[in-house]
Simulated assay, not measured.
Amino acid sequence: MSGRQHHRPMTPGDGFFEAVTDEGSDPAAVRERAELAARLLVRGAHDSADAAVAERLVHLAETEGLETLAELWAGAPVDTVAGCLWRLYLLRSWVYADPAGVAAQFEAGRSGAPVARVVAGVADPPGPDELRAMIDQVLRGIVTGDFADVLFRAAAFARVVATGRAVLAPDGPEPTGPGHDVGRVLALAEQLESAGHVELTHGLG
């Protein structure tokens, strides 16, 4: 019999997110509870193999609010589950905010980052609908796959987009808004890839 400890998956509606910020105002305590919530979400959800849990995780930023997730996890280091979750939901928010623009960037970056394109696993042609479907499928992988694979796929996708943004930038004015800065998207790609290797070797904290 396996000695692995199983956790009931934390999902939206359990009231846990309210408890994270309501139990006192000590920043260190809030940070600790927020990181615990992230670990319970990822580790517990993977144990559940429940499609409904996967869908709730995909739409977590919509049901709880991206601002709530930012308050909980935006300050967490990238080598933690909390830090990775924030970056994954931030990446999803970029795609959903401008799917046509991100699709154009991905298309422009495919030839410059061929290996990353394959790892990302985006359908061809990479239109707005395909991009939204891909990023949602990446997040479903928290439940249905391996968390390291989730991080590597998201990192590869961000790397292709950053490459495409660099290709397109000289052709017109620099776009404004989140996700358009080349350096920011490339940094996100590198952070997620590095975290994937940490997850593989000894697990993220």
Results as ranks from 00 to 15, higher is better:
Asp181Phe: 11
Arg92His: 09
Ser48Met: 07
Trp94Pro: 11
Asp79Val: 14
Gly83Met: 02
Gln191Thr: 12
Leu66Met: 15
Pro175Tyr: 06
Asp146Gly: 06
Glu55Tyr: 05
Arg8Met: 08
Asp149Glu: 12
Val161Glu: 07
His180Trp: 14
Glu55Thr: 09
Trp73Tyr: 10
Arg165Phe: 03
Ala38Met: 03
Gly15Ile: 07
Ala123His: 13
Leu200Gly: 09
Met1Gly: 15
Phe157Thr: 04
Ala120Leu: 03
Leu186Thr: 08
Arg39Thr: 08
Ala148Phe: 10
Phe147Gln: 04
Asp124Trp: 08
Asp181Ile: 08
Gly127Lys: 01
Arg184Leu: 13
Ala154Pro: 00
Pro128Phe: 02
Ala120Asn: 02
Leu85Phe: 05
Phe147Ser: 02
Ala82Ser: 07
Tyr96Ser: 12
Arg39Tyr: 04
Asp98Gly: 02
Arg153Ile: 01
Val118Asp: 14
Ser2Arg: 11
Met1Arg: 14
Thr144Tyr: 15
Ala49Cys: 09
Thr68Asp: 13
Asp124Cys: 10
Gly112Cys: 01
Gly127Thr: 05
Gln191Val: 08
Ala103Pro: 10
Ala156Thr: 08
Asp129His: 08
Met1Thr: 14
Ala49Arg: 13
Thr80Asn: 06
Asp146Phe: 07
Val161Lys: 00
Gln5Asp: 12
Gly112Asp: 10
Gly44Val: 00
Asp50Asn: 07
His197Ile: 08
Ala76Trp: 04
Pro99Phe: 03
Glu199Trp: 00
Gly65Glu: 07
His7Met: 11
Glu193Lys: 11
Gly127His: 04
Leu139Lys: 01
Gly75Met: 11
Ala51Asn: 08
Leu186Ile: 09
Val138Met: 01
Leu40Gln: 06
Ala34Ser: 13
Ala189Lys: 04
Leu88Ala: 05
Ala108Gly: 04
Pro175Leu: 01
Pro77Val: 13
Pro128Asp: 01
Ser25Pro: 00
Leu40Met: 11
Trp86Gln: 03
Val198Arg: 13
Asp26Leu: 01
Arg87Trp: 07
Ala156Lys: 07
Tyr89Gln: 05
Arg33His: 07
Leu168Trp: 07
Gly179Asp: 02
Val53His: 10
Ala100Arg: 04
Leu57Ser: 03
His202Glu: 13
Arg140Trp: 01
Arg153Val: 05
Thr201Leu: 14
Asp22Lys: 15
Arg110Phe: 09
Ala70Trp: 14
Ala82Thr: 00
Glu190Tyr: 10
Ala158Ile: 14
Leu41Ile: 15
Ala104Cys: 00
Trp73Val: 10
Ser194Glu: 12
Arg39Ala: 10
Gly112Met: 05
Leu204Ala: 11
Asp149Gln: 11
Phe152Glu: 08
Gln5Phe: 14
Ser93Gly: 06
Arg8Phe: 06
Ala148Lys: 03
Phe16Gly: 15
Val78Trp: 15
